[in-house]
Design a protein around this nucleic acid. Structure first.
Lengths: 139, 139
DNA sequence: ATTCTTCTTTAGAATTATTCTAATCTGTTG
DNA sequence: CAACAGATTAGAATAATTCTAAAGAAGAAT
């Protein structure tokens, strides 16, 4: 049994486990994503990687699949840049609640919230700022 | 001396203080943003508000001005939604360093980092998740 | 005040990441 | 293996934002 087929049986099992049909595209993407150590990908760079390997998966499918995997709990989305710019007149030390449903922000005073245990940043880097977003939803 | 003119002298002083020419558009936006309690705005909704008051400021200028105010330290940008989707194969409890210059993510283990003092969410809401992004830049 | 120079504003085009659409194809089930 | 629900795809559409290049205002110098 070759490495690729071992990868794909694991991927197929994982997909079945979360109720997703193991199509060629999903199996190939899952194999790539989960065969090695943890990684961070964007749709664009995963699509390029796939193309580089000679696999044929459309960009739309890469987007669909990343979202399906995320809903299924296989991936998690990390939010670091702004699709919609929210600007705050309060420039002091504080953080935010974000009500996803309404797109509303509520301030959390800086005296209330504390972040501890931030490791040293990579060599040659300094901390610019620490952003905390507490995402809340209807109970 | 009327309220509007008091607002605009304050706005003019504030703009001069950060080295921005007090043009009509900047004065009007600063007056609106800083006259009352702290607020959160998007370019789009501020532009609508301005239009509703009968003031004429183009959307491009609202964008420019919000960024200038932000660079000048008068505003702060809050990042809550994703312009570029980063997906992480690590779905466990952890947070991230974000190297803005390169657009790179580095995991911070969940055992390392701790967030304390999060107030109770608004009534009827529950915390979905708490995201911490430690933004780092070249020292 | 008038002119000069530089900074600003603006409308509209361009860009970027993403989602939608509608046609085609593929897994799974009976 | 036929049929159907679900998946994939190319390309169009969308949304927020930025860019462009031309016209307009601020402040300085005369």
């Amino acid at each position: 049994m070759g490495k690729a087929s071992r990868d794909s049986s694991k991927a197929i099992a994982r997909l079945r486990g979360v109720g997703l049909r193991p199509t060629r595209q999903r199996v190939e993407l899952a194999s790539l994503l989960f065969k090695g150590p943890d990684r961070h990908v964007t749709a664009e760079n995963l699509h390029e990687e796939v193309a580089g390997l000679g696999l044929k998966i459309s960009l739309a499918t890469v987007y669909n699949t990343l979202h399906q995997f995320t809903h299924a709990g296989l991936l998690r989305q990390v939010i670091v840049d702004a699709a919609r710019g929210y600007f705050d007149t309060n420039t002091g030390d504080h953080q935010h609640f974000f009500l996803e449903a309404e797109g509303t922000l509520i301030d959390i005073p800086g005296e209330d919230i504390r972040v501890a245990g931030v490791p040293a940043p990579p060599a040659g880097m300094t901390v610019d700022r620490v952003d905390v977003v507490v995402r809340v939803k209807r109970a």
